[in-house]
Design a protein around this nucleic acid. Structure first.
Lengths: 224, 224
DNA sequence: TAGATTGTTAATCGATTAACAATC
DNA sequence: TAGATTGTTAATCGATTAACAATC
């Protein structure tokens, strides 16, 4: 073997990265942004771990999937680590989003805007109600669902949020896929199916609440 | 050994139940309810697995944590399994919920009501805005945050939803804990700390979207 | 230097899957 | 009966944690 055995930390060689790691990456980012706001210059795996209730080893292992970001004896420079995590997550760019459904939940999410400062921004809304279509809502244009295949590629949109009633969700997903959407965040409380090349995340408030009621009713089982 | 080795499936003897199992239980429930609506009498671990993209072994293992619900050669009776899962999750009863924050997100969640048919129901809302306090919103009474310790126990409320801006979330959580709340669903994009005896779930839309942007930008990593 | 902290390997732990006897 | 499907054990797989040499 002429190859040196101590190869560089090439993330592409480490095999697939567990989904749980990416989720924690988002949590590190959120925590780092708060640390910077509160005036911290540097942090450490121990501090990040304590804040999020992870072990220090876990923090270092997670970051090591993507390279060497830290300074032995020092820790991590917060702003540097923020930049690197954003690069990894792909949020060092703007992500225009198509939202489908302008009912209670859709309007709520639009008004909420709790995710805009991470680079996500609803660029247009689709609905089937003629009373809502071809107007603006909160400065965002609303189009008829039929025009999804026309408008989504034109605006370079790759992410969509489904906020329609459960019975309509699968058809909406099919339309989004046809329009070339690459990732879907589904708020409808129903299982939807998409091709393997389309990424899917689901948020179901009833399921979140059920996790809590289970934990309360079965006190003996303290998580994991 | 006089004890028979084939002891009954006593869930309390199986050690702590993984959180992931409880989450899948909610998914089974959702799928079973849909199957019943579509006219199915029975189902099987294979069918449930196919619908949710789990292995059949996983479905059976998950259910086996809680007892024997199936019929060899037949499968599971949908309505019976629904009843049993609701018992396990604790949703065979009503859960009044206290919601804190009547901003965009709070109003949205109230109007949404996508979780009411699982037994969860917002019983009252707390806010600090005098213009909103001591009125009704969507038929639900709105109180000042100061009255949380008075009203939550009186209404027998054990679950709360935090829908306030991030900087206010920790103080709200502290107040909820003081009021005796046992479970919190936090929508504020910030890490909050609660005593060990209080259950906490967080939903952060930015984090969900980041999982999608990561998957799109790093096509080589197809989950887990 | 001494103290702190990283990146990384090996050990441990836990969760998923495969296999199959028991059952309908 | 033959075919289907469960509940459960053992085998596999993957993720977390502990430990430590290297580094600042």
């Amino acid at each position: 073997m002429t190859q040196p055995t101590d190869k560089p930390a090439d993330s592409s060689a480490l095999g697939p990265i567990p989904k749980a790691v990416i989720n924690r990456l988002s949590l590190y980012l959120r925590e780092l942004q708060r640390l910077v706001r509160d005036g911290s210059e540097t942090t450490s795996s121990t501090q990040l771990g304590k804040l999020l209730e992870f072990t220090d080893a876990q923090v270092r292992k997670d970051l090591a999937y993507f390279g060497q970001f830290g300074y032995p004896g020092i820790g991590y420079r917060c702003s540097e680590l923020i930049t690197r995590i954003k690069e990894i997550l792909g949020t060092n760019q703007r992500w225009p989003i198509a939202m489908v459904g302008l009912g209670n939940l859709g309007r709520a999410l639009l008004g909420y805007r709790g995710f805009t400062h991470q680079g996500f921004e609803v660029a247009c809304v689709f609905d089937v109600d003629d009373a809502k279509v071809n107007r603006q809502f909160e400065d965002i244009p609303v189009y008829h669902l039929d025009r999804i295949v026309e408008i989504v590629p034109k605006l370079g949109i790759r992410l969509a949020i489904i906020a329609v009633p459960a019975p309509a969700a699968q058809k909406v997903a099919d339309a989004l896929v046809a329009a070339g959407i690459q990732g879907i965040l589904n708020f409808a409380p129903v299982t939807i199916t998409v091709p393997r090349h389309v990424n899917l995340e689901g948020v179901d408030l009833a399921i979140e609440l059920e996790q809590l009621s289970f934990a309360i009713v079965n006190i003996q089982w303290r998580q994991s």
